[in-house]
Design a protein around this nucleic acid. Sequence first.
DNA 1: GCCCTTGTTGATCAGGCGATCAACAATTGA
DNA 2: TCAATTGTTGATCGCCTGATCAACAAGGGC
Lengths: 205, 205
Amino acid sequence: MSRPPSTRGARKPPAERSAEITDAARALALESGLAAVTLRALAQRVGVTSALIAHYEPSMDALVARTFGDIVAGELAEIVALTGALTPRERLKLLVQTVSDGSRTDVTVVWVDAWALGRRNEQLAASVREQMDAWQGVLQATFTAGARAGDFSAADPAQLAWLVLGLIDGLNAQSLVRWGGASDRGDLVARTIAVLVGLPADALS
Amino acid sequence: MSRPPSTRGARKPPAERSAEITDAARALALESGLAAVTLRALAQRVGVTSALIAHYEPSMDALVARTFGDIVAGELAEIVALTGALTPRERLKLLVQTVSDGSRTDVTVVWVDAWALGRRNEQLAASVREQMDAWQGVLQATFTAGARAGDFSAADPAQLAWLVLGLIDGLNAQSLVRWGGASDRGDLVARTIAVLVGLPADALS
DNA sequence: GCCCTTGTTGATCAGGCGATCAACAATTGA
DNA sequence: TCAATTGTTGATCGCCTGATCAACAAGGGC
């Protein structure tokens, strides 16, 4: 009557297992949104029991918040690293192109879920605010640098940064819901933002 | 052993009961978002059993979708009725002021939940697309009328309408999450949209 | 080769969700 | 007054969520 030997969950060092869980959470969030990051979904993906997931992640709220932060902060860091050495105008151009080229619907799904879930998960809400501030900061710095270089005419870089951030988020969410993620808005966003910073309409296209 | 007489749910004609449920769903959605519209929450609010709610509303997905549609369509109809007779410029001005004055956080909560829940509720997703189209249509008509009157310089009214819609939705969601709904963005939105349609920056303020 | 540490499991709990159905009771019509 | 209609309930089902804990077993140290 002895139990058959378990075929699942080969014993692994905690660091490795923990990394597996973190990776699974990220993948799950990018594929199906933060709402899909549940104990059992993670367990199935990693190939272990939900009890083990709970053992490594004592709070799902915290894991979801951390997963959101990792994804968004990672993306922002990537973009900043890619555009750090450029002139403000080139930087803004690449930044706008990156966030509105329609290939980021996975990240948009994460943002949309984060907005909704944030009202029931205070840790997530805090992370959302943090990441919004980070994005706003990068945009504001770009606008300020551009204005200082005499290239942009941004009267209020802080406000303009919030506006552009809202524009990007809104249009991304819109195209996700309305067209499933792939919308052919041409370079409308690039032209709009160009006008807003006092550049010729095609300066960022 | 007879049951004590029930103190709840006085017998009411179906039409009245149905209206109660619809009203409760609307109130619940505006207070706490569409995610709060559940069988038991409705039952408690109306003062009946969840079984009765299920009897009147055989599908919660359908009720949620209907509630969303009622709220958003009602708001749009209200705004249109209020601005129908105005010139395009005055109409756009009032429209922009209405949707970005910070007193509509309840409707914003509904939108944010709708975006997230729409991925699991196809009827809701369809309603979201429908209401987005309706808003876009009103904006587009306004831009077209303004251009025909020689007041706006809207090259592509359709695209511009989507852009403005995205801007409004994004900024509303942003201020909801970031500042709890009340953000002092001044008339940044009005100035931005004014520029986008070729008006002086303060034309819509 | 054995023991002890510890990674992992299975079972289970409390709570939420939508949904169903026989039975009850309030009202209406005859 | 009695019977038929029908609005309403209580109990329950299946499925999901996060979380807990005793028991098991794999592996390293001795």
